[in-house]
Write a protein that binds this DNA or RNA. Sequence first.
RNA 1: UGGGAUGUAGCCAAGUGGUAAGGCAUCGGCCUUUGGAGCCGACAUCCGCAGGUUCGAAUCCUGCCAUCCCAGCCA
Length: 558
Amino acid sequence: MNGNNESTTSENFIKAIIREDLKTNKWGGRVHTRFPPEPNGYLHIGHAKSICLNFGVAQEFGGITNLRFDDTNPTKEDVEYVDSIKEDVKWLGFDWADREYYASDYFEQLYEYAIELIKNGKAYVCDLSAEEIKNTRGTLTEPGTESPYRNRSIEENLDLFQRMKAGEFPDGAKTLRAKIDMKSGNLNMRDPVIYRIKHTEHHRTGNKWCIYPMYDYTHCLSDSIERITHSLCTLEFEDHRPLYDWVLDELGVYHPQQIEFARLNLSYTVMSKRRLLQLVEEKYVDGWDDPRMPTISGLRRRGYTPESIRDFAERIGVAKRENTVDLALLEFCIREDLNKRANRAMVVLDPVKVIIDNYPDDLVEELEAINNPEDASSGTRKVLFSKEIYIERDDFMENPPKKYFRLSPGQEVRLRYAYYITCTNVVKDDSGNITEIHCTYDPETKGGSSPDGRRVKGTIHWVSANHCLETDVRLYENLFLNEDPMQFERFQDNINPNSLQIVNAKAELFLKNAKVGDKFQFERKGYFCVDSKYTTSEKLVFNRTVTLKDSWAKVSGK
RNA sequence: UGGGAUGUAGCCAAGUGGUAAGGCAUCGGCCUUUGGAGCCGACAUCCGCAGGUUCGAAUCCUGCCAUCCCAGCCA
């Protein structure tokens, strides 16, 4: 499958800034961005927004984008995460070429810069404990107080910092702090810690270091080292920008521009790594790639395409306003993509048997079906038809309401690509459940149209009872019942108990050749893909990506 | 009188002094061998509120209100 339905790119304030910078030649005509994940969890749809922004904007203006792992905290990070992140960015369709960087690659240089800060009297070694630092930081409305170690001599600071690096002190015994302003209204400027001691092995540098630089200190310098032009990050870092600028200015080094935009929130889900990690660890879901998760890997397994996610990212725009995008927009994007690309199949999810009494007992006919009415090049296929078939249980009603135009006693419907049938009677078991529906067919309507031109309102899908494939189909609903799960004391309490339902379905025979990841529209039901986790050589398992729009559900008030 | 930011339709979002783009959702209608898709139409006398400047204000000024972020040796 291939296709592309991305809408034309829209304007946003970041593009406006870049366009202006290009006009004034601020960066010598360069546009160089970076996507800087911390490898401490899987990427989610919110990261996809950032990825599409960073790579997209560079692409649009002839620039390039680095992939940089912000790996300055060895206690939280792991290679499992760097591998998944690389896979996800690649899958989304972006290429960082050979520019795969790690903040940890810069540890040596960062250390040298720290020494320079010390020499300039702009940083000092502080012996205060974490608790004491917290207590002297002040509050939102009151200034902090200066550390008693703030005015150590440069020589002493140099000596101590070197000994911190050499491993002479235990975790937490000392920190290196920037000497800025304990009275600043911006808490980030109250002598922030820029190095801490952690005798922890790092997934890349091993045991080489026992001091690790903090985010604020590392990020701006990494951007500087990589000659980034526009450093795009989310709103919560707005308060950190003065520190970003301070470090680079004090060191007098290349100085990128940090620009903040609003992170994505999506209705009916949660979107923080911490919360997603909780869902995984507390076993509410099957893992980071559970199809109900808003992770890239979850969406991939669910059947979303990279094109649909890029289209979504384009449609939601980029601005500074806090936002919660309607899940319906994401669903719209995948439907629109798959409508044009996915071949159709008839699959009965909740089967009930129909017997066509006047159809010859042993006859089996081959009928022609269109693979995708939206794509003439997709061709046709043959479907087997016989006396006994399955239809959806809810495509029959004994006492139908007004405007119900599927099968009911005396009402004629079309079996898609087959014949018109009319229900004559039903057979029930002792508890009143329908076990068989008896019908007659009109042999003149083969293919699904009648020579006399009479109209039937309803068309339903079916499979031949003796010519079908058993498959498991996993039907997903939103993981959460409320559009804003975070309004609950415990967001876990809002989990939808019906977010996963597994049914045994009867599918058209040709589906047996489907491969993991293949996508189909099950006619009248939705889009489905072959699951990568539970499919075996014996049994195909499908995931429902999204339902089709169902205007009958609205009419019937469901 | 802590600091920073944001308020345009149910949800996103353009617009930057010349009289409110676009998308999703919703609601009508047409069409249809998927109650799908497609097509057509409706949907802000008004831009958080109140004043002011101007021939003219969502855009400029003043004041107010609301919401979000910040007190990790996390990122």
